[in-house]
């Protein structure tokens, strides 16, 4: 397996969250009908960036404590 444990998989996941969606949004912004629609797309991306960052921290902490448990 390329990503042997949870923390590396988390690392891979955040790339999809941030960059993958970011690139999709970037592509769609270019053909959005209006400025408001484009801003809304960017808002969705920013929201996922923020929540993704928080959630990955939470899960990483949870995992570390789980693994250090005797």
């Amino acid at each position: 397996m390329r990503f042997p444990d949870t923390l590396t998989r988390l690392h891979a996941l955040t790339k999809a969250d941030n960059l993958g969606l970011g690139l999709v949004v970037l592509g769609l912004v270019l053909q959005a009908g209006s400025v408001a629609a484009a801003l809304k797309l960017i808002c969705v991306w920013l929201l996922l960036l923020l929540s993704g960052a928080c959630v990955s921290q939470l899960i990483a902490r949870n995992t570390r404590e789980r693994e250090s448990r005797p």
Binding site: T6, R9, L13, A16, L21, L48, G52, V55, T63, R66
Partner: peptide, 13 residues
Amino acid sequence: TDNILAVQLFGTG
């Protein structure tokens, strides 16, 4: 935890 990661990815996708 891996299950939740998969769901998180599913949500983003």
